[in-house]
Protein backbone atom coordinates (compact mmCIF):
# COMPACT_ATOMS: atom_id res chain seq x y z
CA UNK A 1 0.00 0.00 0.00
CA UNK A 2 2.77 2.42 0.98
CA UNK A 3 4.77 1.37 -2.02
CA UNK A 4 1.72 1.91 -4.20
CA UNK A 5 1.16 5.38 -2.77
CA UNK A 6 4.77 6.34 -3.35
CA UNK A 7 4.56 5.18 -6.96
CA UNK A 8 1.33 7.10 -7.39
CA UNK A 9 3.07 10.30 -6.28
CA UNK A 10 6.03 9.64 -8.57
CA UNK A 11 3.72 8.83 -11.46
CA UNK A 12 1.72 12.00 -11.07
CA UNK A 13 4.92 14.05 -11.01
CA UNK A 14 6.22 12.48 -14.19
CA UNK A 15 2.75 12.73 -15.71
CA UNK A 16 2.68 16.47 -15.02
CA UNK A 17 5.83 16.94 -17.08
CA UNK A 18 4.46 14.84 -19.96
CA UNK A 19 1.16 16.67 -19.74
CA UNK A 20 2.76 20.08 -20.07
CA UNK A 21 4.65 19.00 -23.19
CA UNK A 22 1.53 17.30 -24.52
CA UNK A 23 -0.40 20.57 -24.40
CA UNK A 24 1.99 22.02 -26.96
CA UNK A 25 1.39 19.06 -29.29
CA UNK A 26 -2.34 19.14 -28.85
CA UNK A 27 -2.66 22.89 -29.43
CA UNK A 28 -0.56 22.81 -32.59
CA UNK A 29 -2.32 19.72 -33.88
CA UNK A 30 -5.67 21.27 -33.12
CA UNK A 31 -4.94 24.42 -35.01
CA UNK A 32 -2.92 23.34 -38.03
CA UNK A 33 -3.38 19.60 -37.96
CA UNK A 34 0.28 18.61 -37.97
CA UNK A 35 2.52 16.68 -35.61
CA UNK A 36 5.08 19.25 -34.53
CA UNK A 37 7.90 16.77 -34.32
CA UNK A 38 10.33 19.40 -33.13
CA UNK A 39 8.26 20.10 -30.03
CA UNK A 40 10.11 17.53 -27.92
CA UNK A 41 13.34 19.25 -28.87
CA UNK A 42 11.89 22.63 -27.95
CA UNK A 43 11.38 21.11 -24.51
CA UNK A 44 15.02 20.05 -24.53
CA UNK A 45 16.13 23.56 -25.54
CA UNK A 46 14.03 24.92 -22.67
CA UNK A 47 15.80 22.58 -20.25
CA UNK A 48 19.22 23.73 -21.52
CA UNK A 49 18.37 27.41 -21.26
CA UNK A 50 17.14 26.75 -17.75
CA UNK A 51 20.31 24.86 -16.85
CA UNK A 52 22.56 27.63 -18.12
CA UNK A 53 20.61 30.41 -16.47
CA UNK A 54 20.44 28.49 -13.18
CA UNK A 55 24.18 28.01 -13.06
CA UNK A 56 24.71 31.61 -14.09
CA UNK A 57 22.42 32.91 -11.35
CA UNK A 58 23.93 30.66 -8.71
CA UNK A 59 27.44 31.64 -9.63
CA UNK A 60 26.39 35.28 -9.60
CA UNK A 61 25.58 34.78 -5.94
CA UNK A 62 21.80 34.51 -6.08
CA UNK A 63 21.12 31.78 -3.59
CA UNK A 64 17.54 32.61 -2.58
CA UNK A 65 15.91 29.66 -4.32
CA UNK A 66 12.34 30.93 -4.93
CA UNK A 67 13.63 34.08 -6.61
CA UNK A 68 16.17 32.16 -8.67
CA UNK A 69 13.49 29.71 -9.71
CA UNK A 70 11.16 32.49 -10.75
CA UNK A 71 13.83 34.23 -12.82
CA UNK A 72 14.84 30.96 -14.45
CA UNK A 73 11.23 30.18 -15.29
CA UNK A 74 10.75 33.58 -16.89
CA UNK A 75 14.01 33.44 -18.84
CA UNK A 76 13.45 29.90 -20.00
CA UNK A 77 9.83 30.47 -20.98
CA UNK A 78 10.52 33.63 -22.95
CA UNK A 79 13.64 32.47 -24.77
CA UNK A 80 12.20 29.04 -25.54
CA UNK A 81 9.06 30.72 -26.81
CA UNK A 82 11.34 32.55 -29.22
CA UNK A 83 12.63 29.21 -30.47
CA UNK A 84 9.08 27.97 -30.90
CA UNK A 85 8.22 31.06 -32.90
CA UNK A 86 11.32 30.74 -35.08
CA UNK A 87 10.74 27.07 -35.84
CA UNK A 88 7.21 27.83 -36.99
CA UNK A 89 8.34 30.81 -39.03
CA UNK A 90 11.17 28.98 -40.81
CA UNK A 91 9.89 25.46 -41.24
CA UNK A 92 6.10 25.46 -41.16
CA UNK A 93 4.72 28.77 -42.34
CA UNK A 94 6.11 28.54 -45.89
CA UNK A 95 4.35 25.18 -46.19
CA UNK A 96 1.03 26.26 -44.73
CA UNK A 97 -0.89 25.73 -47.96
CA UNK A 98 1.19 22.79 -49.06
CA UNK A 99 0.44 19.12 -48.84
CA UNK A 100 0.34 17.33 -45.54
CA UNK A 101 3.59 15.38 -45.60
CA UNK A 102 5.83 18.35 -46.35
CA UNK A 103 5.56 20.02 -42.94
CA UNK A 104 5.94 16.64 -41.29
CA UNK A 105 9.29 16.17 -43.02
CA UNK A 106 10.44 19.69 -42.18
CA UNK A 107 9.38 19.04 -38.59
CA UNK A 108 11.54 15.93 -38.49
CA UNK A 109 14.34 17.95 -40.11
CA UNK A 110 13.94 20.66 -37.49
CA UNK A 111 14.05 18.06 -34.75
CA UNK A 112 17.34 16.69 -36.12
CA UNK A 113 18.67 20.23 -36.51
CA UNK A 114 17.81 21.30 -32.96
CA UNK A 115 19.25 18.15 -31.41
CA UNK A 116 22.50 18.46 -33.27
CA UNK A 117 22.69 22.19 -32.78
CA UNK A 118 22.53 21.76 -29.02
CA UNK A 119 24.94 18.85 -29.24
CA UNK A 120 27.53 20.86 -31.13
CA UNK A 121 26.99 24.04 -29.11
CA UNK A 122 26.93 22.45 -25.66
CA UNK A 123 28.59 19.07 -26.04
CA UNK A 124 27.19 15.58 -26.08
CA UNK A 125 27.72 14.64 -22.44
CA UNK A 126 25.02 14.65 -19.79
CA UNK A 127 24.82 17.94 -17.94
CA UNK A 128 24.28 17.75 -14.19
CA UNK A 129 22.75 20.43 -12.00
CA UNK A 130 23.29 20.43 -8.26
CA UNK A 131 20.09 19.74 -6.29
CA UNK A 132 18.31 23.05 -5.83
CA UNK A 133 15.24 22.05 -3.91
CA UNK A 134 15.57 19.21 -1.47
CA UNK A 135 13.58 17.83 1.41
CA UNK A 136 9.93 16.99 1.68
CA UNK A 137 7.20 15.54 3.82
CA UNK A 138 7.08 12.03 5.17
CA UNK A 139 3.41 11.42 4.81
CA UNK A 140 3.34 7.84 5.98
CA UNK A 141 5.51 5.21 7.50
CA UNK A 142 4.82 1.53 7.73
CA UNK A 143 7.21 -1.32 8.47
CA UNK A 144 10.13 0.95 7.82
CA UNK A 145 8.93 2.00 4.39
CA UNK A 146 8.55 5.75 4.21
CA UNK A 147 6.27 7.43 1.72
CA UNK A 148 7.88 10.68 0.65
CA UNK A 149 6.30 13.67 -0.93
CA UNK A 150 9.17 15.97 -1.77
CA UNK A 151 8.86 19.73 -2.05
CA UNK A 152 9.99 19.32 -5.62
CA UNK A 153 7.04 17.07 -6.40
CA UNK A 154 4.62 19.45 -4.71
CA UNK A 155 6.07 22.30 -6.71
CA UNK A 156 5.80 20.43 -10.01
CA UNK A 157 2.22 19.37 -9.45
CA UNK A 158 1.20 22.85 -8.22
CA UNK A 159 2.80 24.65 -11.15
CA UNK A 160 1.22 22.21 -13.58
CA UNK A 161 -2.23 22.62 -12.12
CA UNK A 162 -1.81 26.39 -12.03
CA UNK A 163 -0.69 26.59 -15.65
CA UNK A 164 -3.41 24.22 -16.69
CA UNK A 165 -6.05 26.48 -15.19
CA UNK A 166 -4.44 29.59 -16.65
CA UNK A 167 -4.31 28.13 -20.15
CA UNK A 168 -7.83 26.80 -20.01
CA UNK A 169 -8.93 30.33 -19.14
CA UNK A 170 -6.90 31.77 -22.00
CA UNK A 171 -8.49 29.39 -24.46
CA UNK A 172 -12.02 29.84 -23.20
CA UNK A 173 -12.10 33.50 -22.19
CA UNK A 174 -9.70 35.66 -24.18
CA UNK A 175 -9.94 36.95 -27.78
CA UNK A 176 -6.76 35.01 -28.55
CA UNK A 177 -8.40 31.80 -27.38
CA UNK A 178 -11.45 32.56 -29.46
CA UNK A 179 -9.26 33.19 -32.49
CA UNK A 180 -7.50 29.90 -31.89
CA UNK A 181 -10.73 27.98 -31.68
CA UNK A 182 -11.96 29.71 -34.82
CA UNK A 183 -8.80 28.76 -36.73
CA UNK A 184 -9.21 25.22 -35.48
CA UNK A 185 -12.71 25.00 -36.94
CA UNK A 186 -12.16 26.66 -40.29
CA UNK A 187 -9.04 28.60 -41.11
CA UNK A 188 -10.33 30.22 -44.30
CA UNK A 189 -13.51 31.39 -42.64
CA UNK A 190 -11.54 32.71 -39.66
CA UNK A 191 -9.36 34.69 -42.02
CA UNK A 192 -12.41 36.11 -43.77
CA UNK A 193 -13.85 37.17 -40.42
CA UNK A 194 -10.80 39.31 -39.82
CA UNK A 195 -8.71 37.01 -37.65
CA UNK A 196 -4.99 37.25 -38.28
CA UNK A 197 -4.43 33.54 -38.81
CA UNK A 198 -0.64 33.72 -39.11
CA UNK A 199 -0.39 35.63 -35.86
CA UNK A 200 -2.75 33.23 -34.09
CA UNK A 201 -0.76 30.23 -35.22
CA UNK A 202 2.50 31.90 -34.20
CA UNK A 203 1.08 32.62 -30.76
CA UNK A 204 -0.02 29.01 -30.47
CA UNK A 205 3.56 27.90 -31.06
CA UNK A 206 4.80 30.51 -28.59
CA UNK A 207 2.42 29.28 -25.92
CA UNK A 208 3.24 25.65 -26.57
CA UNK A 209 6.97 26.37 -26.40
CA UNK A 210 6.60 28.33 -23.17
CA UNK A 211 4.80 25.39 -21.55
CA UNK A 212 7.45 23.02 -22.87
CA UNK A 213 10.04 25.29 -21.27
CA UNK A 214 8.29 24.97 -17.92
CA UNK A 215 8.34 21.21 -18.40
CA UNK A 216 12.05 21.53 -19.22
CA UNK A 217 12.74 23.43 -16.01
CA UNK A 218 10.87 20.83 -13.97
CA UNK A 219 12.56 17.94 -15.70
CA UNK A 220 15.92 19.54 -14.96
CA UNK A 221 15.10 20.09 -11.31
CA UNK A 222 13.50 16.69 -10.84
CA UNK A 223 16.11 14.53 -12.49
CA UNK A 224 19.10 16.82 -12.08
CA UNK A 225 20.68 15.78 -15.39
CA UNK A 226 19.85 16.56 -18.99
CA UNK A 227 21.37 15.90 -22.37
CA UNK A 228 20.59 16.85 -25.94
CA UNK A 229 18.61 13.64 -26.52
CA UNK A 230 15.96 13.98 -23.78
CA UNK A 231 13.58 15.73 -26.17
CA UNK A 232 13.05 12.79 -28.47
CA UNK A 233 11.75 10.18 -26.03
CA UNK A 234 9.86 12.71 -23.91
CA UNK A 235 8.42 14.11 -27.12
CA UNK A 236 7.09 10.76 -28.34
CA UNK A 237 5.60 10.02 -24.97
CA UNK A 238 4.02 13.45 -24.72
CA UNK A 239 2.55 13.04 -28.17
CA UNK A 240 1.27 9.65 -27.09
CA UNK A 241 -0.29 11.41 -24.12
CA UNK A 242 -1.91 14.00 -26.37
CA UNK A 243 -3.39 11.32 -28.63
CA UNK A 244 -4.44 9.24 -25.67
CA UNK A 245 -6.31 12.15 -24.14
CA UNK A 246 -7.91 13.07 -27.43
CA UNK A 247 -5.97 15.35 -29.67
CA UNK A 248 -7.08 18.97 -29.64
CA UNK A 249 -8.32 18.75 -26.06
CA UNK A 250 -6.33 20.55 -23.36
CA UNK A 251 -7.71 18.62 -20.38
CA UNK A 252 -7.24 15.50 -22.50
CA UNK A 253 -3.55 16.26 -22.92
CA UNK A 254 -3.15 16.63 -19.18
CA UNK A 255 -5.11 13.47 -18.46
CA UNK A 256 -3.17 11.58 -21.11
CA UNK A 257 0.10 12.82 -19.62
CA UNK A 258 -0.94 11.61 -16.18
CA UNK A 259 -1.94 8.20 -17.52
CA UNK A 260 1.31 7.77 -19.42
CA UNK A 261 3.29 8.89 -16.37
CA UNK A 262 1.42 6.48 -14.12
CA UNK A 263 1.72 3.56 -16.52
CA UNK A 264 5.42 4.14 -16.86
CA UNK A 265 6.04 4.40 -13.14
CA UNK A 266 3.81 1.52 -12.14
CA UNK A 267 5.11 -0.74 -14.86
CA UNK A 268 8.66 -0.01 -13.74
CA UNK A 269 7.74 -0.58 -10.11
CA UNK A 270 5.78 -3.79 -10.45
CA UNK A 271 6.95 -5.42 -13.66
CA UNK A 272 10.04 -4.54 -15.57
CA UNK A 273 11.77 -1.23 -15.90
CA UNK A 274 13.21 -2.27 -19.24
CA UNK A 275 9.82 -2.49 -20.88
CA UNK A 276 8.23 0.65 -19.44
CA UNK A 277 8.20 2.39 -22.82
CA UNK A 278 6.70 -0.67 -24.45
CA UNK A 279 3.92 -0.54 -21.87
CA UNK A 280 3.24 3.14 -22.59
CA UNK A 281 3.18 2.60 -26.35
CA UNK A 282 1.00 -0.50 -26.06
CA UNK A 283 -1.47 1.59 -24.14
CA UNK A 284 -1.49 4.07 -27.00
CA UNK A 285 -2.15 1.35 -29.57
CA UNK A 286 -4.95 -0.16 -27.49
CA UNK A 287 -6.66 3.16 -26.91
CA UNK A 288 -6.45 4.13 -30.55
CA UNK A 289 -7.88 0.83 -31.69
CA UNK A 290 -10.78 0.84 -29.29
CA UNK A 291 -11.31 4.59 -28.87
CA UNK A 292 -9.92 6.16 -32.01
CA UNK A 293 -10.57 9.71 -30.90
CA UNK A 294 -8.88 9.34 -27.54
CA UNK A 295 -10.36 9.65 -24.09
CA UNK A 296 -11.71 13.21 -24.21
CA UNK A 297 -11.54 13.93 -27.92
CA UNK A 298 -14.53 14.62 -30.07
CA UNK A 299 -15.41 11.55 -32.14
CA UNK A 300 -14.72 11.99 -35.80
CA UNK A 301 -17.81 11.15 -37.83
CA UNK A 302 -17.04 9.69 -41.19
CA UNK A 303 -18.88 11.70 -43.82
CA UNK A 304 -19.85 9.77 -46.90
Amino acid sequence: MEYFLQQLINGLTLGSIYGLIAIGYTMVYGIIGMINFAHGDIFMVGAFIALISFIALLSAGLTFVPLALLIVLIISMSFTAMWGWTVERIAYRPLRASFRLAPLITAIGMSITLQNFVQTAQGARVKPLQPIISGGFEIMEHDGFIVNLSYMQILIILITVGLMIAFSLIISRTPLGRAQRACEQDRTMAELSGINVDRTISLTFVMGAALAAVAGVMYLLYYGVIDFYIGFIAGIKAFTAAVLGGIGSLPGAMLGGMIIGLIEVFWSAYFSIDYKDVAAFSMLVLVLIFMPSGLLGRPEVEKV
Binding site: D277, F281, L284, E300
Partner: peptide
Protein backbone atom coordinates in the same frame (compact mmCIF):
# COMPACT_ATOMS: atom_id res chain seq x y z
CA UNK B 1 -3.58 -5.62 -38.79
CA UNK B 2 -4.58 -3.71 -35.68
CA UNK B 3 -3.56 -0.27 -36.90
CA UNK B 4 -4.90 -0.04 -40.40
CA UNK B 5 -8.24 1.27 -39.25
CA UNK B 6 -6.45 4.32 -37.99
CA UNK B 7 -6.29 7.41 -40.08
CA UNK B 8 -3.64 9.95 -40.90
CA UNK B 9 -1.34 11.02 -38.14
CA UNK B 10 -2.67 8.41 -35.75
CA UNK B 11 -1.31 5.77 -38.07
CA UNK B 12 1.98 7.68 -38.21
CA UNK B 13 2.38 7.83 -34.45
CA UNK B 14 1.41 4.19 -33.94
CA UNK B 15 3.88 2.98 -36.56
CA UNK B 16 6.49 5.13 -34.87
CA UNK B 17 5.60 3.52 -31.56
CA UNK B 18 5.90 0.05 -33.09
CA UNK B 19 9.32 0.93 -34.45
CA UNK B 20 10.47 2.01 -31.01
CA UNK B 21 8.89 -1.02 -29.35
CA UNK B 22 10.75 -3.42 -31.60
CA UNK B 23 14.00 -1.63 -30.85
CA UNK B 24 13.36 -1.75 -27.10
CA UNK B 25 12.56 -5.45 -27.34
Amino acid sequence: FPVLRLRGDYLAIVTLAFGEMIRII
